[in-house]
Design a protein around this nucleic acid. Structure first.
Lengths: 235, 235
DNA sequence: ATTTTTTTATGACTCAAATCATTTTAAATG
DNA sequence: CATTTAAAATGATTTGAGTCATAAAAAAAT
């Protein structure tokens, strides 16, 4: 049994205004509001599991989530991160297949579930949503392909620098100017596609080189230009 | 100046019937027919280039094409292959960005160009096409993510076995039972994400292990089960 | 047919990054 | 607050796969 609490309303949801659902009609927002089902998830909980069939999409109201695939030896490869405003599970729902990844909570989250029927109804009647979904998928695809090429061609050090810049971009900074997320070294390793020990060593190198500062799980980027250079984003 | 020749008609195009354009209305097929522009490309020619802005989509009538990204040291990473019936360039067109990859001809091709305006017109008026495009993008994304995880976690040998199975699946076999395509070792390396020398060595190993037979560029898979096992598709 | 260029093949060597092994530190948990 | 458990840090060692060098074979060009 999921805990009961005050459900956020789609109408006032700041997340919704920034995502693919921003152009729903008032009637659709109301329908979504009555059909949706919101839950609170604690750190470590699974939202959906690789291999299961999707029954709808998830809309993140709050929290931090990782979507990963589990390889041979149980090692995770993180495919995507999600935060407030992000929608999850559309890829599998649209292609009518089982989830190809698992969504797990990294930081306590409030997530709303929108049933398949409702989502597809919107998709068929709102061509603007269709367009936005296509753009979202195109964006994801571009991202995935860029990472693919990087993984095949760039050394770990460069990918690590890229990952830090991505994390900064994605989460922003807190009052101290650190990346606004507490991510384990293991998770960073699973984003970059390397071993945890290697991640620890390279972060330590970056610290020595005054590119970043480390305070526990908090990472502060102190030389942005230097990291960009390290990432070889310009050659 | 592109060579003039007898244009294939969309109406009778066997490629079209198997792709996203299969559910166009008769009127749309006629419009496509009059708006399209077909060209013959020789092996090695470029259809579109990374960084350029798309002006429409390409529909492959005949031939073999590779789409790749060029990394730091000029090394290609092949993202996708295309043959008759495949559509190219929609990813960038939909997200309104420059091409993130280059399309080059591997085997002489006939390719039709459908202008942006026409394509978007169809997309807005034909919800079935929208759905099919979303499914296509979802499929591409799944593929890319699976490759990403493999690249991060599997050794070259396994990825090579996987790649051979993919090539067999994609191109089918010729009369001799070989994969129906003449792909250079370098291209195979750029699919797998490894060095050309490593590709040559592993193919040679597979030959020794009686998994495949090699006759120049032609590869014949003689132990399908063995290759699947080598690819660790089941653990 | 002969030369030039490209592709394939092999060997020798190097090195980036993984793995294994401990220790230290931090975070949960009773 | 002590105790257990998990995460981070560091060192030592191994190894998969890349790079470099050269040769053989095949294709392409003259």
């Amino acid at each position: 049994m999921k805990p009961q609490f005050e459900h956020p309303t789609c109408d006032e949801c700041r997340s919704r205004l920034g995502n693919v659902f921003c152009s729903l009609t008032n009637a659709q927002v109301n329908e979504m509001d009555s059909e949706k089902n919101c839950s609170i998830y604690k750190k470590g909980q699974i939202i959906f599991n690789e291999g299961n069939k999707p029954a709808g999409v998830f809309c993140v109201n709050k929290g931090k989530i990782k979507i990963y695939q589990t390889g041979e030896e149980g090692k995770e490869q993180i495919l995507r991160l999600a935060k407030e405003g992000d929608v999850l599970g559309y890829r599998s729902l649209i292609s009518g297949e089982a989830y190809s990844g698992t969504a797990a909570v990294m930081e306590d989250a409030t997530v709303c579930f929108i049933p398949k029927r409702t989502f597809f109804d919107f998709l068929h009647t709102n061509s603007d949503l269709s367009t936005k979904m296509m753009q979202l998928l195109s964006h994801d695809l571009k991202e995935a392909e860029a990472r693919l090429t990087g993984l095949a061609q760039k050394p770990v050090r460069e990918r690590m620098a890229e990952a830090l810049l991505m994390l900064l971009e994605f989460y922003g900074t807190d009052k101290e100017g650190s990346i606004n997320a507490a991510i384990s070294r293991e998770d960073i390793a699973n984003i970059v596609g390397t071993a945890t020990e290697t991640t620890i060593r390279i972060l330590s190198d970056f610290k020595t080189e005054k590119l970043i500062e480390l305070l526990g799980k908090k990472i502060k980027i102190v030389n942005h230009q230097g990291l960009i250079k390290t990432a070889h984003i310009y050659d």
